[in-house]
Amino acid sequence: MLKGSSVAVALMLLANGAVAKCSDAVVDLRWDGGSARFNVEIADDDIERGRGLMFRESMGRYNGMLFVYDAPSTVSFWMKNTLIPLDMIFLDQHGVVQRVHENAVPGSLESIPGGDNILAVLEVNGGQSRKLGLVEGAQMRHPAFSDTMPAWACE
């Protein structure tokens, strides 16, 4: 009987993501009242970060791009050659959302400041943050934060 109960608890934990493994291709976000998971492409060098999501005509609802820097820094983005509106989610070295910029205008050369001490930026479809209720203070789980005492650690 104890074995059956243990299996039931393990299945429940798996269903709730409590023992989920991290993957470079997935980010998990959680906040009071919500959570989300996005499949991501990684941009972790100057060339990939420079190109970003330029020239894309569409992106899946739960897809995005995670820009990862070598060290926390002051970052800003623009939308040159970007064809779709994007939400930009700026995260510190612990994976905590510091700023959410909604619906960046396609093609705009206006600088969008992310703030200081930013280690990563998640770009998702414009309006997605608001639909989900994603707010500052949310936590991200991803291997990019594994060396920085993450707020939500990978298993």
Results as ranks from 00 to 15, higher is better:
Met1Ile: 12
Lys3Arg: 15
Ser5Asp: 09
Val7Arg: 10
Val7Gln: 09
Ala8Val: 12
Val9His: 03
Met12Phe: 13
Met12Trp: 08
Leu14Thr: 04
Ala15Glu: 08
Ala15Met: 13
Asn16Gly: 08
Gly17Met: 09
Ala20Pro: 03
Ala20Met: 08
Lys21Val: 14
Ala25Glu: 15
Ala25Trp: 14
Val27Pro: 07
Leu29Phe: 07
Asp32Tyr: 09
Asp32Trp: 09
Gly33Asp: 07
Gly34Gln: 04
Gly34Ser: 10
Ser35Tyr: 02
Ser35Lys: 06
Ala36Gly: 01
Arg37His: 06
Phe38Pro: 00
Asn39Arg: 13
Val40Gln: 00
Val40Asn: 02
Glu41Ala: 15
Ala43Ile: 14
Ala43Asn: 05
Asp45His: 10
Asp46Ser: 14
Ile47Ala: 15
Glu48Arg: 15
Gly50Tyr: 05
Gly50Arg: 04
Gly50Pro: 08
Gly50Gln: 02
Arg51Val: 15
Arg51Gln: 12
Arg51Ala: 11
Gly52Phe: 05
Leu53Pro: 01
Ser58Val: 10
Arg61Trp: 04
Asn63Asp: 11
Gly64His: 03
Gly64Ser: 01
Leu66Ser: 00
Val68Ile: 15
Val68Arg: 04
Tyr69Val: 02
Tyr69Met: 09
Asp70Val: 08
Ala71Tyr: 15
Pro72Met: 03
Ser73Pro: 01
Ser73Val: 09
Ser73Gln: 15
Thr74Phe: 11
Thr74Ser: 15
Ser76Thr: 11
Phe77His: 04
Phe77Cys: 13
Phe77Glu: 06
Trp78Thr: 03
Trp78Glu: 03
Trp78Tyr: 07
Trp78Ile: 05
Lys80Thr: 07
Lys80Leu: 15
Asn81His: 13
Asn81Pro: 12
Asn81Met: 07
Thr82Leu: 03
Thr82Tyr: 08
Pro85Glu: 00
Asp87Gln: 06
Met88Ala: 14
Met88Val: 03
Met88His: 01
Ile89Asp: 00
Phe90Ala: 05
Leu91Gln: 07
Leu91Ile: 12
Leu91Arg: 03
Gln93Trp: 04
Gln93Met: 05
Gln93Tyr: 07
His94Cys: 06
His94Val: 11
Gly95Pro: 10
Val97Ala: 02
Val97Gly: 02
Gln98Ser: 11
Gln98Ile: 08
Gln98His: 06
Val100Cys: 04
Val100Gly: 00
Val100Phe: 03
Ala104Gly: 05
Ala104Ile: 01
Val105Gly: 00
Val105Trp: 01
Gly107Arg: 06
Ser108Cys: 13
Leu109Thr: 05
Ser111Leu: 10
Ile112Phe: 00
Pro113Lys: 03
Gly114Tyr: 04
Asp116Pro: 07
Asn117Cys: 04
Ile118Thr: 06
Ile118Leu: 11
Val121Trp: 04
Glu123Trp: 09
Gly126Glu: 02
Gly127Gln: 06
Ser129Val: 04
Arg130Lys: 12
Lys131Arg: 14
Lys131Leu: 14
Leu132Arg: 01
Leu132Met: 08
Leu134Glu: 01
Val135Ser: 06
Val135Ile: 14
Ala138Pro: 06
Ala138Trp: 11
Gln139Asp: 09
Gln139Leu: 10
His142Met: 00
Pro143Ser: 10
Phe145Thr: 02
Ser146Trp: 10
Ser146Thr: 13
Asp147Lys: 14
Asp147Phe: 08
Ala151Leu: 14
Ala151Asp: 02
Trp152Glu: 13
Trp152Lys: 09
Trp152Phe: 12
Ala153Leu: 05
Cys154Pro: 09
Cys154Ala: 07
Glu155Arg: 14
Glu155Lys: 14
